[in-house]
Nucleic acid binder design. Structure first.
Length: 492
RNA sequence: GGCCUGUUCGUCUAGCGGCCCAGGACGCCGCCCUCUCAAGGCGGAGAUCACGGGUUCGAAUCCCGUACAGGCCGCCA
């Protein structure tokens, strides 16, 4: 691979960072890291209507959370990092960069002013559709005389600048993922470079900036494939060397259409809130459309950066699978140590409204108790809630199936006495005493364990029993078992 | 309507002419472990490689059609 790899992620700030955008960012990031290149963040806010400052903030936040740190570009504090800035297109526009280059093409006869109104264009498209022709701009303003122009100007019309597309020939390039791709020029159209507002369009700004920022590889979604021949003709008109192109496949929802809001969570922020770890998101996203030869699933820190390659990228679209995402998050959660897990769990615990001062054991011990069960952080409070309050919320089904057994009330009254006489209230002591109780009374272990579990936690499923009882503490456990005894006795 | 792209288990994928009547992972099913649920271990079902033609001694892999799917055709990006 040649030196000076420079790639960029260029989102338009019109909402939260979408999971598809995050993947594009990730692939660019990984590519840059793999080849010791430069990863650049450029804000493409040329849509004056939809771009917002707030969206820019969201993009920064999501990128930072994912750990996709950029070497150059717009920074959260408003500064510009790097020698090829500014990295915000609206600022570049204000600096006159796009107008300057557009004028150059106009002067050379490679672009022209067009006075057609949006309504006229609309009309043309409708007509074309009716006649089953491609809705392509017919080039009617290509050869306007000075007289015609001044008449339009007098009418108060603001012109756009259109690129004069070659009528003949073929535009092709060797895509790093799709191999050879080609388009006939006569099918292309005179696209707008500068809008009537003076703002550049995507296709124009993108080329100017990629050139000026010395981008070596353009890695983006393959919804841009048909924009590429337009852009290549721009490079040719300027006489610039074009970058390499790599078009990534799309991400689909479960129904096979492009992943969108109606498929549920689509922004990085939503996944963060649900309790996915950034490492999970990165790992999962990397696997959507990319793989190693041995189909490796889980990557240790730094491994993605080492192993990533464009050759391993898929040409066909990938369906997003939330189930596998959750599995993967479980894998990452299980790797966390006690302290880290508590740090991650804390926001969810706080938000749950549980009385965090209630338990007598350290929170990290409680959280870690069920560590191998978690799939997302947000489910932690519900799993542990019985540790945080005086009384037990009984699961009616558990009560029904366990307390209705004839031995239940006998077990509960007996075991409460046994527990209250244990001095060293630790897991091993509790377990030994419980097993002895079962044996002495001719009961199966399960006949004792199950009612006790429901009595202290209210649920039929939960953490390992004796550790749970130890963490609850002697007083609490005995009290709960006695209360449950009343309940079970009443059932009879 | 035109152009472009794509098509291997339900899903993500390995595969780049013989090692493949197709391997891994998620999910599913069963067994084991076990105080429950998980986790873990073991095993299983699941793809005639979209379809039809070629090329070749030999094709999931190369070529051509067909079908289906997606993308683009905006003074959106």
């Amino acid at each position: 691979m040649e030196k000076n790899i420079r790639v960029r992620f260029a989102p338009s700030p019109t909402g939260h960072l979408h999971i598809g955008g995050a993947r594009t960012a990730l692939f660019n990031y990984l590519f840059a890291r793999k080849y010791s290149g430069t990863f650049i963040l450029r804000i493409e806010d040329t849509d004056e209507l939809r771009s917002t400052q707030e969206s820019v903030k969201w993009i920064f936040e999501s990128m930072a959370w994912l750990g996709l740190n950029w070497d150059e570009g717009a920074m959260p504090d408003g500064s510009q990092k790097g020698d090829f800035g500014p990295y915000v297109q609206s600022v570049r526009e204000a600096n006159g960069i796009y107008r300057e280059y557009a004028k150059k093409l106009v002067d050379e006869g490679k672009a022209y002013y067009c006075y057609c109104t949006a309504e006229e264009l609309d009309e043309m498209r409708k007509k074309a559709a009716l006649e089953k022709r491609p809705p392509k701009y017919d080039g009617r303003c290509r050869h306007l005389t000075d007289e015609q122009r001044s008449r339009f100007e007098k009418e108060g019309r603001k012109p756009v600048i259109r690129f004069r597309m070659p009528d003949e020939g073929i535009t092709s390039w060797k895509d790093l993922i799709h191999k050879e791709l080609s388009f006939e020029n006569k099918l292309l159209y005179d696209f707008i470079m500068i809008k009537a507002s003076g703002y550049p369009t995507y296709n124009f700004a993108c080329v100017i900036d990629d050139y000026l920022m010395k981008i070596s590889h353009v890695i983006r979604g393959d919804d841009h494939i048909s924009n590429t021949p337009l852009q290549i003709n721009l490079y040719k008109a300027f006489g610039w060397q074009m970058p390499e192109f790599a078009h990534l496949s799309m991400i689909l929802g479960p129904d096979g259409s492009r992943l969108s809001k109606r498929h549920g969570a689509t922004s990085v922020q939503e996944y963060r809130k649900e309790g996915f770890l950034p490492e999970t998101i990165k790992n999962y996203l990397a696997l959507l459309g990319w793989s190693t030869q041995d189909s490796q699933q889980i990557f240790e820190k730094g491994e993605l950066e080492d192993k990533f390659s464009l050759e391993g990228c898929q040409k066909n679209p990938a369906t997003f699978d939330p189930v596998k995402l959750k599995w993967m998050n479980g894998e990452y959660l299980r790797k966390l140590d006690k302290k880290t897990m508590l740090e991650f769990a804390m926001p969810y615990l706080r938000e749950s409204g549980l009385d965090l001062s209630y338990p007598r054991v350290p929170l990290e011990d409680l959280v870690y108790l069920e560590y191998e069960k978690y799939k997302v952080l947000s489910e932690i409070p519900a799993l542990l809630s019985f540790f945080f309050k005086e009384n037990v919320d009984f699961d009616s089904q558990a009560v029904e199936s366990v307390f209705s057994k004839p031995s239940a009330s006998k077990v509960l009254s007996g075991i409460a006495d046994v527990y209250s006489s244990i001095d060293n209230f630790k897991e091993s002591e509790i377990e030994a005493a419980t097993r002895k109780f079962a044996k002495d009374n001719g009961l199966k272990n399960g006949e004792v364990f199950h009612p006790v579990r429901v009595a202290v936690s209210g649920k039929a499923q939960g953490p390992t029993l004796f550790k749970m009882i130890e963490y609850l503490g002697k007083d609490c456990a005995v009290k709960r078992i006695r209360a449950a005894f009343e309940l079970a006795a009443a059932k009879k």
